[in-house]
Amino acid sequence: MRVLRAEWIKLWTVRSTWVTTLLTLALMIGMAVLMAQAIGSMEGPSGRAIDPKTGMTLTADSRLPGVTVVSLGYMFAQLTVAVMSVLVMTGELSTRMMRTTFAAAPRRFSVMVAKTLVVLVVTVTVSYAGLIGAYFATEDMLTGASAVDLSQTVQQRALVGVGLYLACVCVLSVGIGGLITHTAGAICVVVGVLMVLPTVFQIVTLSSDAAWVHDIYTYLPSVAGEQVILQGVKPPAEGEPAGLRAREGIAVFAGYAAAVWALAAVTLKVRDA
Rank of each mutant, 00 (worst) to 15 (best):
L194W: 05
L194H: 04
M195N: 14
M195F: 09
M195S: 14
V196I: 14
V196P: 06
P198V: 09
P198I: 06
T199L: 14
T199Y: 05
T199N: 10
T199G: 15
V200I: 15
F201V: 13
F201H: 04
I203R: 06
L206V: 05
S207G: 09
S208D: 09
D209W: 05
D209K: 06
D209P: 00
A210M: 08
A210T: 11
A211P: 00
W212M: 15
W212N: 01
W212S: 11
V213N: 10
H214N: 14
H214V: 03
H214L: 09
H214Q: 12
H214P: 02
I216N: 03
I216V: 14
Y217A: 02
Y217K: 06
T218F: 01
T218A: 10
L220Q: 02
L220V: 07
P221W: 01
P221C: 08
P221I: 02
S222K: 04
S222E: 04
V223K: 06
V223C: 00
A224L: 05
E226S: 15
Q227Y: 01
Q227G: 03
I229F: 00
I229G: 01
L230S: 11
Q231A: 13
G232L: 13
G232Y: 09
G232S: 08
V233Q: 09
V233P: 00
V233M: 07
K234F: 11
P235H: 03
P235D: 04
P236Q: 03
A237Q: 07
A237G: 09
A237M: 13
E238Y: 08
G239P: 10
G239H: 13
G239T: 05
G239Q: 10
E240P: 02
E240R: 06
E240V: 13
P241H: 13
P241I: 14
P241L: 12
A242T: 12
G243R: 07
G243I: 11
G243A: 07
G243V: 00
L244G: 01
L244F: 06
R245D: 15
A246K: 00
A246N: 05
R247S: 10
E248C: 13
E248A: 13
G249V: 10
G249K: 06
G249C: 03
I250T: 03
A251D: 10
V252C: 02
F253R: 07
A254G: 14
G255H: 00
Y256K: 10
Y256R: 14
A257Q: 05
A257E: 04
A259P: 04
V260D: 01
V260A: 02
V260W: 01
A262E: 03
L263F: 00
A264T: 09
A264H: 03
A265W: 09
A265I: 05
A265P: 06
A265L: 00
T267S: 13
